[in-house]
Amino acid sequence: MKIFKFLFVLLLVKPLVFVGLGLNIINRQNLPNKGPIIVAANHNSHLDTLVLLALFPISMVHRVRPVAAADYFLKNRLTAWLSLNVLGIIPIQRSPSKSQRSAIFDECHQALNQGDILLIFPEGSRGEPEVMSGLKKGIFHLMQGHTDCQVLPVVMRGLGRALPKGTAMFVPFNCDVIIGDGIDKFNNADHFLNVMQQQYDQLASACIVTQCE
């Protein structure tokens, strides 16, 4: 899997992101150089995961694990093979049964225990371009038991216009990626939601090439 992901990011993802998009990256120095850590970004486009992958050095991409919806990315054999063996996703059931709930984060816990970097979209699914929907509490529950794990908030703007939800047409567009500071403690799930929303609002105010609402 490592060689597939290495070649995919090197030959396709990085050229697409850094040549096809006008990418403005703020606070790139805040990106982690090791895990365990959860990169928590807003979600408007299928480009979101690719942009986040492209930000990391090639030597680290095998440690960067997108957490993605099993029902979408494992819906057929080809998509499942590409998602698991090239992107290296950790599939999550969005509507788990009672028997699945206790094990829903097992692979995520395993990845954090071995020092991986998880990419998670706390909105749960793609929303309307440039509009954040409500945050979910899953990241807070995932952090329990990982005292050495931080959450890194990231705001991306413009990608929902470059590849809008429901379309397959890529449109070159100037985009912002604003990277916050890592947060290592939340008092409870509601505190997590409040702090993260405040962080997203603050980061969004730093947008340069797109108008943030």
Rank of each mutant, 00 (worst) to 15 (best):
E123R: 12
S97T: 09
A162W: 08
F121S: 05
A103K: 15
V151K: 15
V151W: 09
S97F: 05
H146M: 00
M143Q: 13
I139L: 08
T147A: 09
L159G: 04
S95G: 05
R126G: 00
V151M: 10
L159P: 05
Q93P: 03
F140R: 14
P122A: 05
S125H: 15
P91W: 01
D106P: 08
P96F: 01
S133Y: 15
P91G: 03
Q144F: 08
P96G: 05
E107G: 02
V154R: 13
T147R: 14
A168K: 15
N113M: 06
K165D: 00
Q110L: 03
F105R: 12
P122M: 01
D106H: 14
L142V: 07
R126L: 00
T147E: 12
Q114G: 03
E107I: 00
Q150T: 08
E130A: 04
F105Y: 15
G166Y: 05
Q150I: 00
L119N: 08
E128H: 14
R126N: 01
M169D: 07
I90C: 05
L152V: 10
N113L: 09
G127M: 10
L119E: 05
C149P: 11
S125A: 09
M132Q: 15
I92Y: 06
I120W: 06
L135M: 10
S125W: 13
G166M: 01
Q150R: 12
V154N: 15
M143L: 12
E107S: 14
Q144A: 04
I92H: 10
P96N: 04
L119P: 10
P122W: 06
A111Y: 05
H141C: 07
K136P: 12
G158A: 00
S95N: 14
L152R: 14
L135G: 14
P164F: 01
I117M: 04
F121L: 03
S95T: 08
S97Q: 11
N113R: 14
G145L: 05
V171E: 09
I120E: 12
Q100N: 07
S95C: 05
L118S: 11
P91V: 00
M132P: 13
E130N: 13
L163A: 03
D116C: 06
Q100E: 12
Q144R: 15
E128W: 09
G115R: 11
H141M: 02
F140T: 10
H146Y: 04
M169V: 12
Q144G: 07
R101M: 02
Q150D: 10
D148F: 07
I89M: 10
G138K: 14
D116M: 03
T147S: 10
L119Y: 08
I89C: 03
G88K: 08
G88S: 03
